[in-house]
């Protein structure tokens, strides 16, 4: 059965709602759910103070309303499914290790930060630090997938160590900065300073981009691994051109300030173009 949570009120003050996750709410009755504590600003409140609750959760939660000010939904979740029919707030699915979150609207900053498994799909745009690490830490996305159909802010995949981030729109500056490993695929424009301080990992762009002076051009080639990724995305219903699968890519390696084992692949239909 699906648990429906409908946000009743218009929020100015953020709600700390890490509790909204199948892990925490599964098996509870409606009245028990209504009493589950959460923090509104600096006060302890209950879920029932803010949400119309119907149904129970056996793995799936549907959230209706504008969740922009609701933080940390699905954080640390290990399985199940959350659907947000609207926008989501900061820290969506941060540190999650399994399950799936789908957002119809936009997502906030730190979406999927430090997550280690599962999948987040954002239909709209997402904020800064998607799949990133929190300040001072060096443990960004460690596994799982984040797919953003719109644009993202700066530092997508900061310090990521594994997993996949797909951005169908544009990404901001410092995409994949401090990256240790993993894959970022951007279909729109890349911001500047892509891959700064990256050690390993792949950043793929379907558009041209200027790279830092510490990146070196290696070659134009047809990376076979990428075919796997793109076909996999196509299977998920994302539209991918044949040319992007069949075509060639310019490979740049860097960042020579670090291990120099990372790569930026820039799509180019044919040699030299």
């Amino acid at each position: 059965m699906v648990l429906d949570l409908k946000l009743r009120t218009q929020l100015d003050i953020p709600l700390e709602a890490g509790i909204i996750s199948p892990d925490r709410l599964a098996g509870l009755t409606e009245s028990e759910i209504a009493r589950v504590p959460l923090i509104h600003g600096n006060r302890k409140k209950s879920l029932g103070d803010f949400f119309d609750i119907s149904g129970t959760c056996d793995g799936e939660i549907r959230l209706v309303g504008d969740f922009t000010k609701v933080k940390s939904v699905g954080s640390g979740m290990t399985g199940g499914r959350i659907i947000i029919e609207g926008n989501s707030g900061m820290h969506l699915g941060c540190a999650m290790s399994g399950g799936e979150i789908a957002v119809e609207g936009d997502a906030g900053d730190w979406t999927g930060a430090e997550m280690s498994g599962g999948r987040i799909v954002i239909k709209g745009n997402a904020g800064h630090m998607v799949g990133g690490a929190y300040r001072g830490g060096h443990m960004g996305l460690q596994g799982g997938e984040i797919i953003v159909h719109g644009n993202t802010g700066n530092e997508a995949g900061n310090s990521m160590r594994n997993g996949l981030i797909v951005i169908m729109g544009n990404s901001g500056d410092f995409t994949g900065a401090n990256m240790f490993s993993g894959t970022i695929i951007v279909f729109g424009e890349l911001g500047i300073r892509t891959g700064a301080s990256m050690k390993r990992g792949s950043i793929i762009s379907m558009r041209h981009a200027d790279l830092l002076p510490t990146f070196t051009y290696s070659c134009f080639y047809h990376p076979s691994f990428l075919r796997l990724y793109l076909r996999r995305l196509r299977d998920m219903g994302i539209s991918i051109d044949d040319a992007q699968i069949e075509g060639g890519y310019h490979r740049w390696c860097g960042d020579s300030m670090e291990l120099n084992r990372g790569e930026v692949l820039l799509f180019s239909g044919s040699p030299g173009s």
Partner: peptide, 8 residues
């Protein structure tokens, strides 16, 4: 100050 990740 250096280690917010250690405090979190």
């Amino acid at each position: 100050k250096l280690q917010p990740e250690d405090h979190r």
